[in-house]
Write a protein that binds this DNA or RNA. Sequence first.
DNA 1: GAATTAATGTGTTAGTTTTACACATTAATT
DNA 2: AATTAATGTGTAAAACTAACACATTAATTC
Lengths: 246, 246
Amino acid sequence: MPAEVNVEKVKNIKSLLAIQSEVESSNKIALSVDCVIFGFDENKLKVLLIRSDLKKYLGKWSLLGDLVSPGEDLDAAAYRILKQRTGLSDVYLEQVHTFGSVNRHPAGRVVTVTYCSLINIQHHKLNILDNELHWHDIKNVTDLAFDHQQIFDNCYRRLQKRIQEHPLGLNLLPKKFSLRDLQNLYEAILDTKMDRRNFRKKFFSMDFLIDIDEMEQDVPHRPGKLYKFNYEKYEKKKKKWVGIDF
Amino acid sequence: MPAEVNVEKVKNIKSLLAIQSEVESSNKIALSVDCVIFGFDENKLKVLLIRSDLKKYLGKWSLLGDLVSPGEDLDAAAYRILKQRTGLSDVYLEQVHTFGSVNRHPAGRVVTVTYCSLINIQHHKLNILDNELHWHDIKNVTDLAFDHQQIFDNCYRRLQKRIQEHPLGLNLLPKKFSLRDLQNLYEAILDTKMDRRNFRKKFFSMDFLIDIDEMEQDVPHRPGKLYKFNYEKYEKKKKKWVGIDF
DNA sequence: GAATTAATGTGTTAGTTTTACACATTAATT
DNA sequence: AATTAATGTGTAAAACTAACACATTAATTC
């Protein structure tokens, strides 16, 4: 919705107006999906944004979204947006929250279901056709169009929490990664520094890393070992009980 | 939606048909809110359900819900449903997930935003006017109407997780409670037994319990002390960093 | 090829948290 | 007065977390 309306649809502004009148005149509720797409590059957490074309938000950045089609499931809509924008299917995607303030969208009542997605930038270099589509360092994400800042903040906080309880962060890394990569990822997402030895000890003790007996290539220093994540083992071991703590 | 449609609206079946044709004919998406309302009574976790009137789900139980009005925010719709059904305002309410499978509702495309609510049954004895509205022991909740079983399971799992990280469970207890009450609550929600000494130690060490210097009344054994929860202190201390663990 | 650089790889200790576990005390009831 | 059914309390072992330093390796520079 918001995002996508501004993006593709607005190139022919007719369709925006159509949506607007449709929504306003009939007092119907329109439904959209917005995706917060995270990537990891140069040891920085990035988010994929596109320029808003809506007059009200001219020049501002917004998330990627589109209206949900009548016969389309919500998750399917989110996957469609991802596929359209990144060319990637088979990516991590998770519904986060639904925003429905009456006045959140200038075109009328548009309720949006938001999704968080994690994609591996290096693996599949994505063809960013639209040159108004860019990766932004999350540290510089401010003042987005619509209520997208709120949506982004919400997703980012969720990511920070989830990454501590599940190995989803690995979706942002190549299949083979070094422990340094992994730590850089956690440090970027959690915006904190960690002790290298304790970080390693922690991950080794979880015992989900497979030593593939390869080394980093082309690093200007002693190369580190590469690992894969043992998803199979993780799925079996998944813990349920964590204990009361607040 | 689902629930509420079947509930109040269906008494005059006209309105259901109106919704149905509206949704089907125009291919529009209707939006509803469903609430999973938890209570705690006789040391059992309960959920508030109502009988479905829809032919397809005759005799089955369903969650409480209603369509979102054009000028109504999502949270407002959830609060409205709660107020209508329980007479309570000022209750704990949290959005959980949005379900939008194309065929989840027989009347057409209805996307529903689900909420989890925790209310204190003893404090405000609620006037259950509708005699098809009942508290169900969550252990006996199976085979709900629509996709409500899925929605319920989802909310319950969320509650189990959240209660370990936040003091929301206290919304299910009276303002003054004994440590035994508290432990019974956790045991009911998490469906587990805990060591009484360690449970006490844990809560005392968190240091959020206020000893109000009162004792239980009318118990057929040695009465325990009563406590209040120090929300003020909790709000100040809230922890952010938990650490990687999966 | 020797020296330098910048990273990897590894262990120990102190402190904290979690778990497992048993007995004296109290108020109500018989 | 005796019984019952709960409350209230402490300790020791085990597991986990946090803090902290030095030898090793490969690439690069001189």
